[in-house]
């Protein structure tokens, strides 16, 4: 095995790990967004409903 092939294998390993890592981070970011939206738009507590009332109506989230 030449030095260059070792380096290239190492690079492939690193880049595929970076890719997987980045996919996990994308998914985490999207889930964070969904959780925030659920809280503002769908949380059933009266206090959450009253605070976000006009926003829920404006986005046409189901309300009341």
């Amino acid at each position: 095995m030449t030095t260059s092939s070792v380096i290239s294998k190492a690079n492939t390993a690193v880049s595929s790990r970076v890719l997987a890592n980045s996919s996990v981070q994308m998914a985490a970011a999207a889930i964070l967004g969904m959780v925030v939206l659920m809280g503002v738009g769908f949380a059933p507590m009266d206090v959450a409903h009253n605070a976000a009332h006009d926003t829920r109506h404006s986005f046409a989230f189901p309300c009341h």
Binding site: L19, S22, S23, M26, A27, A29, A30, L32, G33, M34, V35, V36, L37, G39, V40, G41, A51, A52, H53, D54, T55, R56, S58, F59
Partner: peptide
């Protein structure tokens, strides 16, 4: 004030979902 806060929070939720989708589609 609470409506503005709720708007910004909702916009954050939409923006980060959109950003993740765009970067995934690019990738």
């Amino acid at each position: 004030a609470f409506t503005v806060l709720s708007n910004v929070l909702s916009a954050f939720g939409f923006a980060i979902i959109l950003l993740a989708a765009m970067l995934m589609a690019k990738d």
